[in-house]
Design a protein around this nucleic acid. Structure first.
Lengths: 152, 152
DNA sequence: TACTGATAGTCAGCATACTGAGCAATATTC
DNA sequence: GAATATTGCTCAGTATGCTGACTATCAGTA
């Protein structure tokens, strides 16, 4: 039988599992309570003030039904504001709060440290190769998931 | 700000997301209703008859609290039998059923096709490189998650 | 043998992620 | 302008995946 270690799907799952654990450990040690998903959403809201939820989901490739809960929790933590759009009453405009900006600024070292730790078994070149190959595979498979990346 | 595409954690999430979607699509088209997680568990039970849940979890790097539900569903679908161990009354011995064996046999082409599709943007060599780098990064980070791989 | 520690499994609770359905509002077409 | 299609969002349901707590059992030792 084919070994798990020859299955890219299994390797993907394992690497992601480790990536999340490392992120939570580093961020937790720095004294913050933010998941990788919440971090990406918050950073994207900061970079695109006033964007709506569907756009946010497209920019980070989250499912639109997932983003609802993520934003809920960011709002609950006081890091994001969600208000009805004036131009389109279906849409919710998202805005980062001052508290959100503070968290984002203070959390950055932990996030960057996490990205290094999850590659710690690889040389610099190997790490770059891995990211390049992942980007390439992801680009080719982008439309295969329900939540593809959508360029602005 | 650092782009998401420079974050191995984000790339890991995206690749896994696509891998799961491809797996479910291929397996679903073949007429089966089995998740990647359930597939790996079932294949591992078949290869290690009579193993207990903790051992199973270690072989595929699942958390022991996750494996409970996965085995529940395999039992519910009639693909696995779970019975108390005679030597250790805490443990549950797992056994694949004939139906499980049949499903595993028939599902293999779809699973292998899925593994190819999720690498379709890469050349053969690139695919091998990606898997090698993932294996290396995973090996170095194995103990960083709550559910590390445990060799038998 | 009684005590202590470790282990196997489960459970409650929370956070992703998806499917499929539905509602409200906007856009398009006739 | 009315009918139709599309879009933004939410919800119910299911499946991972984790934390932390708990029970039952086993193993080792005083």
């Amino acid at each position: 039988m084919k070994d798990n270690n020859d299955m890219p799907g299994h390797l993907a799952r394992r690497f992601q599992q480790i990536a999340v654990a490392v992120f939570l450990a580093e961020v937790g040690e720095a004294g913050f309570d933010l998941t990788p998903v919440q971090y990406a959403a918050l950073a994207t809201i900061k970079a695109n003030p006033g964007l709506d939820q569907v756009t946010l989901a497209g920019l980070i490739a989250y499912d639109r039904t997932t983003i609802t809960g993520v934003v809920d929790r960011l709002v609950q933590k006081g890091l994001t504001e969600r208000r009805a759009s004036s131009r389109d009453r279906r849409a919710r405009e998202l805005e980062i709060t001052d508290a959100g900006r503070r968290v984002l600024r203070k959390i950055t070292p932990a996030v960057e440290s996490a990205q290094q730790i999850m590659l710690r078994g690889l040389s610099t070149k190997e790490g770059e190769d891995l990211m390049r190959l992942l980007r390439k595979a992801i680009a080719a498979g982008n439309d295969l998931s329900r939540a593809p990346l959508r360029e602005p």
